[in-house]
């Protein structure tokens, strides 16, 4: 995956991202870490095309994230599962495939079952999100993100609302997806997952990329801030 960030500024009430410039190539699993309010989730949302930056541009694999074509190849997993609550786990997937990807009901069903099985949910497919555990719902939302066959999957703190056991369950499921040959960009607080899964780490601090590199930067932080962060998260 090739990632180009050009002069990104983003403001809500305060500046969240400040003049961000970044170029990265040949990495397929990028972790973004940092304290709350460091702008990491915002950066993820901008890269996914979910939100538009106040100024600047982002290109991924030479395609601008503004391009309508781009969204079709992006999967996004939200902090809380964000499944449609009135639809079963399977229907959450088949509805999208039928209505927005022009699949027949049979095709949609097959694809949905394929990914739900991949995430070990074959026994839960006809349940509503409220009737499964938080971990199962989050895995279903990962299955939903995969089902549209995206090139890149964004995960925004996918385990933020889960207890340690469910966190492990979800992250293990994500690690199993490595063989699918997809690109991942994710925000997380679980450093063991970053070390296992990421091939590149971006550390955000006060709206800027403060430190970045291979996951071993976590073991030997160059900056005081990352050092402090590592102490707090552990």
């Amino acid at each position: 995956m090739k990632l180009e960030i050009n002069a990104i500024n983003h403001t809500y009430d305060v500046d969240v991202l400040k003049d961000l410039n970044f170029l990265l190539d040949n990495h397929n699993s990028i972790a973004i870490i940092g304290v709350s309010g460091s702008g990491k989730s915002t950066l993820l949302r901008l890269m996914s095309g979910l939100e538009k930056p106040s100024s600047g541009s982002i290109k991924i694999n030479d395609l601008s994230v503004d391009d309508p074509e781009y969204k079709k190849h992006v999967g996004f997993v939200f902090q809380q599962h964000n499944l449609f609550p009135h639809l079963t786990l399977k229907r959450n997937i088949t509805l999208i495939l039928e209505k927005t990807r022009n699949k027949t009901p049979q095709e949609a069903d097959e694809i949905a079952m394929k990914y739900l099985k991949l995430l070990h949910l074959e026994d839960q497919v006809n349940k509503l999100p409220k009737n499964v555990s938080g971990g199962q719902a989050q895995r279903a939302s990962i299955a939903r993100a995969l089902s549209i066959n995206p090139e890149i999957i964004f995960l925004d703190e996918p385990t933020a609302s889960l207890d340690p056991i469910l966190t492990h369950e979800v992250l293990t499921a994500v690690e199993e997806l490595k063989s699918l040959g997809k690109s991942f960009i994710f925000v997380t607080h679980v450093l063991s997952f970053v070390k296992d899964f990421a091939d590149y780490v971006i550390y955000m601090h006060e709206g800027k990329i403060h430190e970045c590199g291979k996951p071993d930067i976590l073991d030997n932080p160059r900056t005081i801030e990352l050092n402090e962060f590592m102490k707090k998260v552990r």
């Binding site: 095309g49 979910l50 969204k71 939200f78 964000n82 449609f84 209505k99 927005t100 549209i148």
Partner: peptide
């Protein structure tokens, strides 16, 4: 709000 974002992302038409 996130549900609207998801609808956006998947490309649902207003009617859908």
């Amino acid at each position: 709000h996130d549900q609207y974002l998801a609808m956006d992302l998947f490309g649902f038409t207003p009617f859908q």
